[in-house]
Structure formats: C-alpha cells, structure tokens
C-alpha cells in the first residue's frame, strides 16, 4: 500500500481537499479479515515462563488511570504510590494518567521515580470546545509538569469531513506541548467504521502525534482487538513510509490479564519487537493492574489470590 504514499507527506495537509484525497486514497480495511485475524491471534496460548514475562512487560506498560469527577488529591497520591510499587518484585508502571488540575499532585509524588505523568486535555472526553480553550487546557497541564498529553480529536469535525480542522487542532496542541509527548485519542468507538480508524490514525500521525490512542475509556466499545490491529498496521506502514516510529496505546475495556496478553501478541505479530517496550506501547487501564498482580501472585505462590489482597483504586 505504501507506494502511492511515498510522495512527500508535507503536501497532503495543504488544503482540506488534499487531505481528504490522501485519507480517502488509503486502502480500505477488510472488516471481516481484520476481525478474524484479531480473533485468531487472540487464541494464542501463553503459559508458564512466557506468561510470567508477559505479565511483567504488561505491568511496565500500564498507564494507571483515574479520570473521574470524584478524583481527589488523596486518590491521585495513593495511585501514584501504587504506580511506583505495584507489588512485591513487580516492575513499576509506565505512567499515571490524571486530569490537568491534579497533575501537580502526581508530579510531586512521583518525583525521581521514573514513572511518567500523563494528563488528558483538550476538553476531555468530548473535545467539544474552542481551540483556544483546548490549547490553554494543554498549557495548564504542561506547566504543572506533565510529561505526556493525551488529547482527544474533534470527532464531529472528523465525521463531517472537516479533516483540516482536526489536523490543525492537533498541530496547535502539539505546539503547546513543548517537550511533552503527545498522544492523540481517536475515540474509535465513535468513528463508526474501520476505514475511519485507519484514516484518523494517519491523520494523527501526519499532524505530529507521538502516540495514537484508541479511546477515552468513556465510550463503548473502547479498545477492541481489531481496532488495535488496524492502528498497529497504520504505525507500521507510517514507519515504512517516513521512517518515523509512532507509539500505540489501547485504552478502555482492558480488564483482565488475558486481554493484556492478547494485546501483546497482537503487537508482536503485527509490528514486532520494536514496539514491545513501554516507550512505544502502552495499556491505558485502571482495574487491569490488580488482575495482573493477582495473576503474578498465582504464578509465584501457586495460590489464587482474592481481591481482598490488593488495594482498591
């Protein structure tokens, strides 16, 4: 598919028409094929030592997330502490993800630990606000010390075909990010088709996102396997075209160790080893971590643990 794309990607965003022509020129996604391939890869059996490694890798990729209206500084502190020390012998997680006004709490708690602080922004989760507000929302989080910004795209604009607006918003937010990494949330649950997922992925990558992320976690369905597969194919093709590697973050609906391991199999089979690190693949989750820790404990002690033995979050 890449041959038609090798013309400079810089030109494609010169006008809405050019952008539209490029995105609609991307090959369509075979829905049945994508579903089948994801389902087939999901049946892989990962056991014993491989499972232990997969669990530790998955823990190190978790973006431990709390995005509730009821979040308090105390909850963010508790979650940040857990992010640094999830359990005996377990690796620390990749990042914690909070709302912009609580970033400073997470930054203070996590200072020097190596755990990154991510913040959602741009009128999360709906993205329904002016560009000005979105940029200052981002600036607020960056000023508070966020290492990573999770922005949402304007799905309304995307679905009505105003791709340039979406593009320009991402560019503007990227500029407001400074040194912080930008993750672009596509909210695939609202994009309706797999073709749109592929287009939105490319749009986000061309506009300068460092990561593409499936969902906010507020809309169902969220991070399904086929959608993640399509986004992984997009980053693979993008690297083949431009040489730039982009990360992927499925988020929302990943609750069990089995779900997480399926994701890792998908990464390994689609884009390979290069992406099997917390720098390039993340799992956005909250309840997943406890299940990973429970499975980890089962492997080390031989006993199934109960939820009573892990912190609530």
């Amino acid at each position: 598919m890449v041959s038609t794309v090798t013309t400079s990607l810089a030109d494609v965003a010169s006008s809405n028409a050019a952008l539209r022509a490029f995105l609609h020129g991307l090959p369509g996604v075979d829905r049945v094929g994508a579903d089948q391939r994801a389902a087939m890869l999901g049946t892989r059996s990962i056991k014993t030592t491989a499972k232990a490694q997969a669990i530790d890798l998955a823990i190190s990729m978790v973006d431990l997330t709390t995005l509730e209206g009821a979040d308090t500084p105390g909850k963010v502190r508790a979650m940040s502490t857990k992010a640094m020390h999830p359990g005996e012998g377990a690796p620390r997680v990749a990042a914690v993800c909070v709302y912009p006004d609580l970033v400073h709490v997470a930054v203070e708690t996590l200072k020097g630990s190596g755990v990154k602080v991510a913040s959602v922004s741009t009128a999360f989760p709906s993205g329904r606000s002016s560009l000005e507000v979105k940029v200052s929302d981002t600036a607020l989080a960056v000023a508070a010390g966020a290492d990573e910004i999770d922005m949402v795209i304007d799905r309304g604009a995307f679905l009505s075909g105003d791709y340039l607006k979406v593009y320009e918003e991402i560019v503007a937010v990227k500029a407001a990010c400074g040194d912080a990494h930008l993750k672009v949330i596509l909210e695939t649950g609202e994009l309706a088709t797999y073709d749109n997922v592929r287009r939105a992925s490319w749009l986000a990558m061309i506009a300068g996102g460092d990561f593409i992320k499936t969902s906010t976690g507020k809309v169902q369905p969220a991070a399904t396997l086929p959608v993640t597969l399509i986004m992984l194919e997009a980053v693979r093709d993008f690297r083949a075209t431009t040489g730039t590697q982009i990360g992927v973050k499925p988020a929302g609906g990943i609750r069990t160790t089995k779900d997480a391991i399926k994701m890792l199999v998908l990464v390994n089979e689609t884009v390979g080893d290069d992406w099997l690190s917390p720098d390039w693949f993340r799992l956005g989750a909250s309840t997943l971590l406890n299940d990973l820790l429970m499975q980890r404990q089962k492997l080390t002690t031989g006993r199934y643990a109960g939820p009573d033995y892990f912190t609530l979050d």
Partner: peptide, 8 residues
Amino acid sequence: PGLAAHMD
C-alpha cells in the same frame, strides 16, 4: 487442592 488453597 486449588479450592483449598484459594485465598478468596
């Protein structure tokens, strides 16, 4: 054995 050892 699994049930007897189960912590829950």
